[in-house]
């Protein structure tokens, strides 16, 4: 019986060795180690042995079984690994093939500029105020120190709807409306929006364009506050090393009035085609709110003061992104729009 066991062992080990797949090996396991296998048969047949031989024989069978099992499991691990490797080999792909495109649109460049400015001022405690695009002459002109017949009205030819109603020529009426609504309380707002002027559309003019203005009113607001605020804006918008300079100018709704230049962000001030060789780029108009404007909205101009500034997102986008024709913003050519997708800096 011992010899029989040895022979069986040789046989199984041979079969294990010969198994080329997990399945074959499993078949071997079932055939030899299963409930109906020869090893089990041997154990069952032990009953015929003399009682004193049984423990010895039993131990022997167990040793063989363990030995076989160990070999089988080692072989199993090997075959499984091989199978996985084959599978992985089959699953290889060409990783240089293009990925599935993610379909994404993006902000219009003007919105991009407007939101950037909005966010910058929100960070300084400003709120966003909006108002109607069709306005009363009163809010568009009169409340801003531009009475009927004022020579400065020639500066902006308007689209009138009736004698008293027109398409707003700037976003300043939002300021006038806000002042009226705030009834003498401090104000800190940014007003973005569409505006309209009687211009023929060409590379530098558009009958519809965008403006963004700011207004701060409070006790003892000084011109130095305006300058400091504009400097923060210029640095955040155009780079930390931007310098600003103010030049006296004229707007009916501010006194004193200024225009702000920034040092050229392309050449740094040495002179190039962006700054027309001057080293400076005109960015916005600003000033201290005219006392007439304050008084008309019910503010005591002796107690309260304020500053206002305004700029054109088109101009800023044109400067920043090198856009040469203002009409591109309103043609909505996808080849143009899609270029304003990625982040900057």
């Amino acid at each position: 019986m011992e010899a029989q066991l040895q022979q069986l062992k040789e046989e199984v080990l041979q079969k294990i060795e010969a198994s080329a797949s997990v399945k074959e090996l499993n078949d071997v396991r079932v055939a030899y180690l299963g409930k109906k296998g020869p090893i089990t048969d041997l154990l069952k047949g032990m009953g015929k042995l003399p009682a004193e031989e049984r423990p010895k024989m039993g131990a022997l069978v167990n040793v063989v079984r363990e030995e076989v099992t160990t070999v089988l499991e080692a072989r199993m691990t090997l075959l499984q690994e091989q199978a996985i490797n084959e599978q992985l080999e089959k699953e290889s792909i060409d990783v240089t093939l293009p990925g599935r495109p993610v379909k994404m649109g993006n902000h219009h460049p003007l919105t991009r500029v407007v939101e950037e400015i909005e966010d910058l001022f929100i960070g300084m405690g400003y709120e966003i105020a909006e108002g109607p695009e069709v306005e009363k002459d009163y809010y568009n002109f009169e409340a801003l120190n531009l009475p009927k017949g004022h020579p400065a009205r020639d500066m902006q030819d308007s689209f009138y709807i009736s004698e008293d109603i027109l398409l707003r020529t700037h976003t300043s009426p939002v300021q006038a409306r806000t002042m009226e609504a705030k009834e003498g309380q401090p104000i800190k707002i940014i007003c973005p929006g569409k505006v309209y002027r009687r211009d023929n559309d060409d590379a530098t003019h558009s009958h519809q364009f965008t403006q963004i203005e700011g207004l701060v009113i409070g006790e003892n607001i000084r011109m130095s506050d305006l300058k400091g605020t504009l400097s923060v804006f210029a640095k955040k918008m155009f780079g930390d090393d931007r310098e600003i300079r103010l030049r006296p100018s004229f707007f009916p709704f501010t006194e004193p009035s200024v225009e702000m230049d920034i040092s050229c962000f392309k050449c740094g001030g040495d002179g190039c085609n962006v700054c027309k060789k001057t080293g400076w780029i005109e960015i916005l108009g600003a000033g201290m709110v005219h006392p007439n404007v304050l008084e008309m909205a019910g503010y005591d101009s002796k107690k309260l003061s304020g500053f206002a500034f305004g700029m054109g997102p088109e101009r800023i986008a044109m400067l920043k992104y090198g856009v040469e024709d203002i009409r591109h913003f309103y043609t909505n050519d996808v080849r143009f729009l899609s270029q304003f997708h990625r982040t900057e800096v």
């Binding site: 929100i122 401090p186 000084r222």
Partner: peptide, 20 residues
């Protein structure tokens, strides 16, 4: 000279800004 105007920021009660 406007260059001589210093740069300051409004001194006022601090309020959070934001969108509606």
């Amino acid at each position: 000279g406007y260059d001589e105007i210093p740069m300051t920021l409004p001194v006022e009660e601090s309020k959070p800004g934001g969108l509606t």
